[in-house]
Design a protein around this nucleic acid. Structure first.
Lengths: 203, 203, 203, 203
DNA sequence: AATGAATGAGGGTTCATTCAT
DNA sequence: CATGAATGAACCCTCATTCAT
């Protein structure tokens, strides 16, 4: 029977991760110091080490949990749709609905940085490769369903198209996060959607 | 060994930049130490500071020169082509011709890292935004020429398509640099080319 | 060993300043390294930076506090005297009572060095000029009181004499700190006192 | 038979010392780099080491020669005077005739710095102590002559008064070099002269 | 559990000195 | 002779991590 409830600890942990995310978004992983996170989270240095055994672990945990949750949300969001067309439209809608704030641009950079850092460590490279495949296969499945339902042309190569889709998403987000204001974010999504749909749909 | 030719100094400088690039590719900008670069370039710590006044300047110079040179090469490569179709095919060819080596993946990451770091510094953000526009406008011009020549549909929005093109390129490179071996790099370029061409060409 | 009393921290701070003073006395400001101070104070490099954000700040703080305290002590010491003659005698006594140790000679040099360094920095020059005027005016006031009381000749120029007094003090200390043993420190103070008194007193 | 005349080398040497003096005046001994001196003297780094085997030697040589020359000039200047009174007046005149420029203030600081640095090295401390005695004894001799001639009171302690004189000189110069513009340099010399003369002269 | 003082390895940078040309 | 590129020890400072309280 702990002095402090499990629930409290969990909330503390979340709050630390939250703070870390903010700081990483501001300065990047390397440039963010533990002191930055301490300052932002209004706790103490020692406390962070009770929850995470190193800055790196904090970072990896943060990114791990974020990607998992995002992917989980993604899947849930799709349960209510039945046709492939609707699902793909929903996929685009996710990104078209984003609020184009500075905060989001920072978030993008945190994730992009993680992509880039990951191949430099034996461990994370594997994780990220799998993550990529997870996302790709998620879309592959949708496309395949579409093919079976006659919505999507049989000759479409599901994995290639899926891969192209995510490449476009990440490329666009990357550019937007750098260029900002003057980037034709929304128009690009609309046009790309049009182009891809025209390319794969039977009608 | 002073009183050395300008040529000698230029080569030294190049060699330092070369070494730095290698090291940044290996560990990233922040994690690369001046000692790493010293070790790799077989020189001494002090010497680097005769050529670049700080690690940051070395980095910025490196990235600046690389991007400039790349863009210049890009333009030159296109002089021998006359139609828009040929030019766009050439653009794809550049990337399809890349040797898919570990070295190139590292190179991609160096450039991606620079994209991400840039918004965190007043100065570089501007530079990178302009760089992006340079590349985009380069393609915009080609598309516009194509429209005038009747090769490309009048209703195509040049800037949006150009922007989509580069988003796809960078997204694909980013993913490839992380996923590596099992990434369907070549097929994606082929399909994307097909898709885009079908989308914009009149015939 | 955190959560430490303010008092503890204050003592730590004092002890660091103390150590720094010792080291500066030994080698001078520039030649003293942070490692010297660390070694002398039995702490760690990082800790010093918790209290002072740079070597320079440590130095300036040290000198600032020392001069302030000295001047404060000076003033207090004079409260119990009423006539100008007594006060001036007391002024001389301060210096005549000094123990002529190697430690004191080092201390002199630290202060002299600060005088000399100060004009090279925008900021400190102003401070030191004011310090000088503070000391001078302190004596000017005593002399003026003496004039009003009829102790000191009306025609004496207070500021000039005050300035001469401090010039003599610093000159003597400077020479003593260099020449050491064989310097006729005490006799000089006695004779100068005699000479100045004869020059300004009415009787 | 050297390729380059001895005369040329001597002038080069002088010019290097001259440049060093300028630089030391600007930044102080420690903060002046060999590069500073090279830049100021329009020569090369290697060349300096042909003339002086280290920065320290350059510094010591400079200070040595300057003090020697100054002392030599001092003595010569006095040959044309016969009475002690005239000589002491001349001594004061030397300082009263100084042009109160920023350059001179820098010069003072170079010399003061040398005083302070000297006790920290076995070698220079001895030199400076002797230098001090040289100057003191020079004045002692004048005073003694004055006593013999009946100009100066027999009971005056020559060495103490001489020492006081130089203490006053250096103290005044030190303060002037720091305080600058608003320092009553000239008036102090006048008054001090008056005071000392009154104190020692028989009439 | 929570704190934050303490640690010290390691990083970027400087600069006196050397020596090949 | 003169040059200035090259060297590397040494410096100041940062910051992830520890641990006494």
């Amino acid at each position: 029977m702990p002095k402090v409830s499990e629930d409290y600890k969990e909330r503390k942990r979340e709050s630390l991760l939250e703070s870390a995310l903010k700081c990483f978004g501001e300065k990047g992983y390397q440039s963010t110091t533990m002191d930055d996170i301490v300052a932002y989270s209004n706790t103490s240095k020692g406390l962070i080490y009770n929850y995470f055994k190193s800055k790196e672990e904090l970072y990896l945990t943060l990114m791990e949990e974020r990607t998992n949750r995002t992917f989980k949300n993604l899947k849930e969001r799709f349960e209510k749709f039945s046709t492939a067309k609707e699902k793909i439209e929903e996929l685009f809608r996710i990104y078209k609905d984003k609020e184009l704030t500075e905060d989001w641009r920072k978030l993008i950079r945190v994730h992009m940085e993680f992509w880039i850092i990951s191949p430099r460590q034996e461990n994370t490279n594997e994780i990220m490769s799998n993550r990529y495949k997870q996302y790709r296969d998620f879309l592959v499945q949708i496309i395949d369903e579409g093919k079976n339902a006659g919505e999507i042309k049989k000759e479409v190569q599901s994995d290639i198209v899926a891969s192209i889709f995510w490449a476009f998403i990440d490329g666009t987000c990357l550019h937007y996060s750098v260029v900002g204001e003057n980037y034709s974010y929304m128009e690009q999504f609309n046009k790309t959607e049009e182009m891809i749909m025209k390319y794969i749909l039977t009608t």
